[in-house]
């Protein structure tokens, strides 16, 4: 929407005002996330930019909070716990969700709308309600304070994303491709691995990434459910933020921002590849 040469003055003003407003909104979105990264290198235990930092004096910067993070067995254990829980729940959620999405997209699926609504509901129900419900239920069947219980609850939270993303990638699916493959003599297995899976894969991967991030970031349920040996990093961060916020948390937060940049890039690459494969975009 470049400004046409015949624009009036008021259009000109509006054009630039609009760009400035948008710039400010983008700034609002990104600045808070960016700002914690330099602060995590603060040599002082403060949450502001010290004079040394602003004058780019190297003495104002240090790796002490990263050092504190990596040398703390409590933090490292909880980070390990987080990854154990997230990876396990992602694998289960992806398997269950993908298969279910394949079923939901069959033309003969009975009660599709109702079942979809039920499968998506864990994403909609507030976490505190899920936590309240699962807390008592899991305590009763002996699953509170166990990895297994936490993983099950995260599978519940993760599957809606897998179902949605896989469904979305199936929605653009061209049925004639299957027929073409079969008419060219491929059997069902070949068709699945050569045609269906490659087209499905982007949806599966982004669903899995969503499930992974959801589990990695989850704090409400684990806060009620985790015993001392399962405490994940989010619970430690949450109590740290409530009690005595230390720059160590900012170091971990910066690493998590780096992780989200990696995930985001992965997704973007998948999306582009996907569009190319479907011939939607020329590039």
């Amino acid at each position: 929407m470049a400004l046409p040469s015949y624009a009036t003055n008021s259009e000109r003003i509006w054009y630039y005002a609009f760009r400035i407003i948008c710039g400010l909104i983008f700034f609002f979105l990104v600045a808070p996330i960016v700002v914690i990264i330099p602060l995590s290198f603060n040599a002082q235990p403060y949450f502001t930019f010290t004079k040394e930092m602003l004058s780019l004096n190297p003495a104002g910067y240090s790796l002490r909070w990263y050092d504190a993070l990596f040398s703390s067995s409590e933090w490292m254990n909880s980070i390990a716990n987080s990854f154990i829980i997230s990876i396990a729940s992602t694998i289960i959620a992806t398997a269950l969700g993908t298969v279910a999405a394949l079923g939901l997209n069959r033309p003969n699926m009975p009660a599709r709308a109702l079942i979809t609504a039920v499968l998506i509901s864990p994403m909609i129900v507030p976490l505190i309600i899920t936590a309240a419900a699962l807390f008592s239920f899991f305590a009763r069947i002996g699953l509170s304070n166990t990895y297994f219980g936490i993983i099950l609850s995260h599978v519940v939270l993760g599957t809606p994303f897998v179902v949605l993303t896989v469904t979305a990638s199936l929605a653009g699916f061209n049925e004639t491709l299957i027929r073409a493959s079969q008419s060219l003599g491929a059997n069902q297995t070949t068709t699945f691995f050569k045609i269906i899976l490659p087209l499905l894969l982007p949806g599966v991967i982004s669903g899995a990434l969503f499930a992974f991030v959801t589990s990695l970031d989850e704090v409400v349920i684990v806060n009620f459910m985790a015993g001392p040996s399962q405490t994940p990093m989010t619970v430690r961060m949450f109590s740290g933020l409530r009690e005595e916020i230390s720059p160590t948390i900012l170091a971990l937060a910066s690493l998590l921002v780096a992780l989200s940049i990696i995930l985001l890039t992965t997704l973007e690459l998948i999306r582009r590849r996907n569009e190319r494969m479907r011939g939607m975009s020329p590039g």
Binding site: N108, P110, I129
Partner: peptide, 30 residues
């Protein structure tokens, strides 16, 4: 068509039962 429906449902069933047991029943209990 009934066979097709059953097939479609059998794909959804594992997740559906999982959600019912690990999510819906706890909420009803609450």
């Amino acid at each position: 068509q009934a066979v097709e429906r059953r097939r479609a449902f059998s794909l959804v069933a594992p997740l559906l039962f999982f959600i019912l047991i690990v999510f819906a029943i706890p909420i009803v209990a609450m």
